[in-house]
Simulated scan of single mutants.
Amino acid sequence: MRKPLEPAELDAALEKVHHAGMPGVFAEVRDGEQVWRGAAGFADVATGRPAAVDMRHRVGSITKTFTAAAVLRQVEAGHIGLDAPIGRYLPELVPGERGDAVTVRMLLNHTSGLAEYLPYAYPSLKAFPALADTSPESLDDNRFTRFDPTELIALGVTAPAVGAPGDTPGVYSNTNYLLLGQLLERVTGATVEECVTRHVIEPAGLRDTELPVGPYVDGPHSRMYEAWFGMIDPPRDYSVYDMSWVGPAASLITTVADLNRFYGMLLAGEIVSPSSLAQMQRTVPVISQEGRTIDYGLGLHPMEGSPSGGFCGHGGTVWGAGALAMASADGERRMAVAVNQQRWHVLDTDGRPRPHPIDAALADLHRLATHG
């Protein structure tokens, strides 16, 4: 049973996230016609500039829901077959038997068996270290690097497979969504940024949302502080960053208000058709990047801890920035929360993040926002 929004309680919960150690946090919660918006802490710790709820922000893998919606729009138009092999469209990127076995659906729900390219990017492209590495210097080295998505895809395709096509549990992999970006470009003749904008962002009326093509965030925004598990001390600002290293998998810039509008419209069948939405909500078990098994659909998944028929959405992180957005099944209750620091944990001797007060404070905020 959901309770009505309690603005004073939400204000206090937001402040607790800041006081637990988060530089800045901003959020919007909607329940029908009732709207609560709030911000706490700092957008810039050096100057004391306060966080504001209307700031544009990088939201990481929430991008996947937008990319998946763009693919489903092309499925509805008859340009893509949801269960067609990716080799039909991109034989040069996924050749041979694997291209015949991996379908578009498998890319969308991470059951393709294709490995994540990021662990292989550091030794081969001198790009990003894996989380287990102890040096984050390459984050600075690649601030303005423009990556070729086909090179990144090749790393994931040629890496040892993490499973057979279609097997479950699947394994979460950004390689899948870079391939979906190339698929959209192949069938539409437009860039993936143009395609997602034309078929998802603009029809939804999202005025502050974009897939960027450069390293800067336009308009009011926060600095984005990366701590890299205590190895960057004090945390460093990475708000200026070329996001071609993740592209259609995790590069979206948006606001909490736009996120709530998007997920509300999506679950109302106003962005993709009701039948396409039903496909998006069909889940399979997938092993997340954190090593947990989650239920995952087509760029959309039920949120952990939500009851049956409860909330679904997506979360995301990039260097220094993170967000979580979800909506109830009826689209009436919606929550979007953004934070401007990432990897605030310290690792234990096994390389696992230790619990931090921010975790509990965020969990309390999410619970209040969704269920009261």
Rank of each mutant, 00 (worst) to 15 (best):
T254N: 06
T255E: 08
V256H: 05
A257S: 15
D258H: 10
D258T: 08
L259F: 00
F262S: 07
F262W: 11
F262R: 03
F262Y: 14
Y263R: 07
Y263P: 04
G264F: 13
L266R: 02
L266P: 05
L267D: 04
G269V: 06
G269A: 12
G269H: 10
E270V: 02
E270P: 13
V272Y: 00
V272Q: 03
V272G: 03
S273D: 10
P274R: 05
S275I: 03
S276L: 04
L277V: 11
L277D: 03
Q279V: 13
Q281V: 00
Q281C: 15
R282A: 13
T283Q: 07
P285M: 06
V286K: 14
I287Y: 01
S288Q: 06
Q289A: 14
Q289G: 15
G291F: 11
G291P: 11
G291M: 13
R292G: 08
R292D: 14
R292W: 03
T293C: 12
I294K: 03
I294F: 03
Y296M: 08
G297E: 02
G297Q: 07
G297H: 02
L298V: 00
G299E: 02
H301Y: 06
H301T: 01
H301G: 09
H301L: 04
E304F: 10
E304N: 11
E304H: 05
G305A: 09
S306N: 05
S306F: 04
P307F: 09
